[in-house]
């Protein structure tokens, strides 16, 4: 275990998020069992009011999850000095590979929370709360994921062993060979460049097609394809950041770290880069996730309007992301090819 202030903050934060999540699960169970919109009893009124509490808590949980994602990456970066051979966050994560699972879990939870909030949003727009049961079942399913992530995170930090000088001899020799790899293997620059721009073009084309589609026409499949494609685009983008965006920003052909761009020496460019990517993908996926609920009469128009709004935001963010990713390729002095 490493007694580091960042580690302690993350563990305490997880604990608080976990308590909040399970508190809302308890409320969710109560709501699912007792919910009956047709009644106007005191109990139903209380349940309706409790939905506000759950919504508020979930908003905070999501906010905390975003912060903890960044704090986790930051902390992993800060503790890399403790491991032989580690040069940045990548090395710290390799020092106990469950760290990667924690990182993925944090990203997944971020998206799951965002989807919940999207569903919640369209549900609140309707008079009769048609999605109450669904969204609280979703919430109950989400809680174990948050618990798992908290457990992994604890496991990761507990499992870290700093390579420090022991009293008998230098640790280097007791630990021979156990140094951590400090870089990620990456895809070749040339092909990934094409794949990235192709995927980006498809993503934007799909979203634009959805915007141009006239209201009322049946085209749910396009929405689903675009949602699924957003996920593919997300994966491709992360791979591309590791493969070539990073090296153009670092201006060195061997440094593929996806975390260093969040640092000061690269002007914090990682924040707008990841922010626009996460945001763009999130809004596009949210628009797809609420599609099935168009069956319900009372929220069809609301969903349609929300989808159009989210699609527009998504297009703007994804274009921003592509511009930020392309910027150094055009304007930096570094050339990956002779």
């Amino acid at each position: 275990m490493i007694f580091h202030t960042g580690v302690l903050a993350l563990v305490v934060g997880s604990l608080i998020v976990l308590i909040m999540a399970f508190f809302s699960v308890a409320l969710a169970l109560k709501i699912i069992i007792g919910w009956d919109i047709t009644k106007s009893t005191a109990k139903q009124l209380l349940l309706e009011r409790q939905t506000y509490l759950v919504t508020t808590i979930m908003k905070y949980v999501m906010g905390f999850q975003i912060l903890s994602l960044f704090l986790f990456v930051y902390t992993a970066d800060d503790i890399h000095k403790l491991f032989v051979g580690a040069m940045c966050a990548t090395g710290s994560l390799n020092a106990n590979p469950i760290g990667w699972s924690v990182l993925f879990a944090k990203i997944v939870i971020f998206f799951l929370c965002a989807m919940w909030l999207a569903i919640n949003r369209v549900d609140e727009l309707a008079e009769d709360y048609p999605l109450v049961r669904f969204k609280y079942k979703y919430l109950i399913a989400l809680a174990p994921v948050i618990a798992l992530e908290a457990y992994w995170q604890l496991d990761y930090f507990l499992g870290l062993r700093a390579n420090v000088i022991t009293s008998c001899c230098s640790s280097l020799f007791s630990d021979e060979g156990a140094t951590v790899a400090s870089s990620l293997s990456s895809l070749p620059v040339g092909p990934s460049l094409y794949v990235f721009y192709a995927a980006g073009a498809v993503e934007i084309a799909l979203l634009s097609a959805l915007l141009m589609r006239r209201a009322g026409r049946n085209g749910a499949w396009l929405r689903y394809i675009s949602g699924a494609w957003s996920f593919i685009f997300f994966v491709v983008s992360i791979a591309s950041i590791i493969s070539f965006v990073s090296i153009y920003y670092y201006e060195t052909p061997v440094h593929h770290c996806p975390f260093d761009i969040l640092q000061k020496q690269y002007m914090f460019i990682g924040y707008p880069l990841y922010g626009s990517l996460f945001g763009g993908v999130l809004f596009s996926m949210a628009a797809a996730v609420v599609e099935p609920f168009k069956k319900i009469d009372s929220i069809r128009t609301e969903i349609h309007n929300a989808q159009r709004r989210w699609t527009k935001i998504s297009i703007v963010l994804i274009i921003m992301f592509i511009i930020i990713a392309t910027w150094p390729i055009i304007f930096s002095n570094f050339r990956a090819y002779g």
């Binding site: 305490v12 912060l67 960044f70 930051y74």
Partner: peptide
């Protein structure tokens, strides 16, 4: 950031 997490959360 750490401080924020430790106190505001």
């Amino acid at each position: 950031f750490v401080l924020f997490f430790l106190t505001v959360v």
